[in-house]
């Protein structure tokens, strides 16, 4: 892998990302002009293109949900991981790591469903479910990353007279960064998927055309929503991959 990163082929590996990004933006903005295409595919449909909200609005709403929840989840997840790996929070480490492992076996749909009795319908339960669920992979990855810091690096820093805060900022966090980054990527992708299902509880997202299409037997809506949200997920995943390679 490392040898490859140096080769000219690696630079060419970036082009799919920009290509994908272009395709994604085209899908978002040019969807209204695809009416003839969908009309040709499904001649029986009166409304071949979803118009209740523009795909740009839907994408923005979707990204807002994902960004807000992942940011909060990162704050809680990384914060908790730092706390339980310090001397003062060691008490909570066994429970927190057990919860992070068990919690991730909970299906995201179930977490979403359980948030409704507490918060009602709309964006609120979706947001809370996204935060709750995506905190766990970030938390687990951060704990794993901090544990992977070699003891020798820690000892050397302490020997050089680093304060605990300096040790954390300048040694532990940079060394754990690849793990944390992988956790963030995982969390973001899960959130893009769960935000799509969030439209079943009334949140506006790219899932709205899909679910409306399913309940109103309009396959065109389903395809339009599915294409845009899939491209969004793949573009974001590729962006993380590109960033990851740049960081290493």
């Amino acid at each position: 892998m490392e040898a490859e990163a140096q080769s000219p082929g690696a630079r060419a590996a970036h082009w799919p990302f920009f290509l994908l990004l272009t395709v994604f933006l085209a899908a978002v903005f040019l969807m209204p002009s695809t009416a003839p295409l969908f009309h040709w595919l499904f001649p029986d449909l009166l409304r071949p293109v979803y118009t209740r909200a523009s795909f740009f609005e839907l994408t923005v709403a979707h990204c807002e949900l994902v960004f807000a929840s992942t940011a909060v989840a990162a704050f809680i997840g990384i914060g908790t991981a730092l706390y339980v790996t310090r001397q003062s929070g060691k008490e909570f480490l066994p429970l927190v790591s057990a919860l992070a492992a068990i919690g991730q076996t909970f299906p995201p749909v179930a977490v979403l469903a359980l948030a409704i009795p507490l918060l009602g319908y709309g964006a609120a339960p979706t947001l809370v479910a996204l935060v709750l669920y995506s905190t766990l992979p970030i938390l687990e990855a951060t704990i794993a990353g901090l544990y992977a810091v070699p003891g020798s690096a820690r000892d050397a820093a302490l020997g050089l007279g680093f304060s605990p805060a300096g040790l954390l900022w300048r040694i532990e966090l940079p060394l754990a960064a690849p793990f944390i980054f992988a956790g963030l990527r995982n969390a973001t992708i899960i959130n893009i998927g769960t935000a799509t299902i969030g439209s079943s509880v009334g949140a506006l997202s790219l899932g709205s055309p899909i679910l409306e299409g399913l309940s109103a037997s309009n396959p065109a809506y389903v395809i339009e929503g599915a294409i845009v949200v899939s491209l969004l997920a793949v573009v974001v995943d590729r962006a993380f991959e590109t960033l990851e390679q740049a960081l290493n």
């Binding site: 799509t196 299902i197 899932g207 389903v222 599915a226 949200v229 793949v234």
Partner: peptide, 21 residues
């Protein structure tokens, strides 16, 4: 296969419906 992993489940279900029909 990694690209498929990123696609949201309901979108993948939805994309399969029309070709299968």
């Amino acid at each position: 296969l990694g690209v498929i992993q990123a696609v949201p489940s309901i979108a993948l279900f939805g994309l399969l419906i029309a070709p299968l029909s």
